[in-house]
Nucleic acid binder design. Structure first.
Lengths: 214, 214
DNA sequence: TAGATTGTTAATCGATTAACAATC
DNA sequence: TAGATTGTTAATCGATTAACAATC
């Protein structure tokens, strides 16, 4: 499939990348309903965007439809999965086994998409040794050692803000490729590592604004 | 303070609204360090944006700085809080007391900002009657009744996707002003209610893309 | 006053939308 | 073939950046 995907000369706008998972989710839903084809117009109507935008977004990566016909749902879903790296095994470690960490670890749909939690770390002696997501929770003291001897793609930060910077640094220095952070702080992407911050509390403030401004 | 905030003739771009919480968080940090003034340039440097953007963003709402001086940290923080509706009491109900619901309920900083969970609902008999965030968990059967007899601003959806649409509708029909949804589905804003979707799994896919494209 | 920095207008840039020839 | 819908170019729109007069 690789040769059907455009080599990207320029970086893809972040807005485009953030829409791909939306398309992916919807297409997966269509597949479950055994719908085989869809036009950009139908897709746009369902998602509340324009057909132009969908076609432009896809055009960054290649041509995946047929004129006069539209897109084959399964094919397009697979192409987007490929672009996003879904189903291409990613090994993750989870740091922080609080409620949020537990919620993440138990979210089975990640595993189905190829994202596997290989180890869980925490600094709470009461949690160490208990089991989460098939992993015996380890002391944070063993994190660095574990990273050195295992090929980890993604480090998940589900710990309070105080410790997040030092753990992020440890990820960076030990070959982790990306950080998925839930700490209320902006961890910056650097040369060796990319970061996706999930700012839950900022999202509540955005909602609060929307309510006010009604 | 109200009269210092511009009456908004046109809706504020969502991008602007989403940056305000970032500014707010940073300014709160400065306050803790007892820093009293800051220029748009300094702020921009720290946040990795341009000074122009910060001044433009604020300009949507009014003039809060002094030429030749910059901004008083406390004043600007308070103005942004006011714009976002922080510290203006919001009553919330939480639907779903799984790990994610628990994580949200225990996140104390919401309460400090004026967001209070007034009741928690779940459909699991094992959970009903237990206590979370000072609330005895109620059966989902009592949700509608509760919404009718209490003034609820925000409904939090922390349940599987199957049930989320029906609960969202119940929120809408019973005077809830906003929905904060963690379900992997796009709940649409309607005439009477605004929605903020937190798509955790989409964020992981975005990270996955960033890793691939390195 | 001189220096600094805002508020705001103007210029630029990029993203979205529209249009249409290509073609299934 | 005729109709439909893409891929892609061109036009539009909006957001970001630059510039600078106002003024603290």
């Amino acid at each position: 499939m690789d040769n059907a995907i455009k080599k990207m000369d320029r970086p893809i706008p972040l807005g485009v990348v953030k829409r791909l998972p939306v398309y992916y989710r919807f297409l997966t839903g269509l597949m479950k309903k055994e719908i085989e084809r869809i036009s950009s117009q139908e897709l746009a109507d369902k998602l509340g965007v324009t057909a132009s935008q969908i076609r432009q977004d896809l055009n960054h990566f290649g041509s995946f439809g047929r004129r006069g016909y539209g897109y084959r749902v399964k094919e397009l879903q697979e192409v987007i999965a490929y672009i996003l790296g879904i189903n291409q095994r990613k090994n993750m470690v989870l740091v922080g086994a609080g409620n949020l960490g537990k919620a993440i670890a138990n979210y089975s749909s990640f595993r189905e998409k190829g994202f596997f939690i290989k180890a869980v770390f925490d600094n709470d002696p009461a949690k160490i040794g208990t089991v989460l997501a098939n992993c015996k929770i380890k002391s944070i003291d063993f994190l660095e050692e574990f990273l050195c001897s295992n090929n980890i793609d993604i480090g998940i930060l589900a710990i309070p803000v105080e410790n997040s910077t030092i753990i992020a640094k440890m990820f960076e220095e030990n070959g982790v490729k990306g950080i998925w952070s839930f700490a209320p702080i902006n961890i910056k992407s650097r040369r060796n590592i990319v970061v996706e911050n999930v700012h839950i509390s900022e999202s509540l403030m955005t909602l609060s604004y929307k309510i006010q401004s009604e």
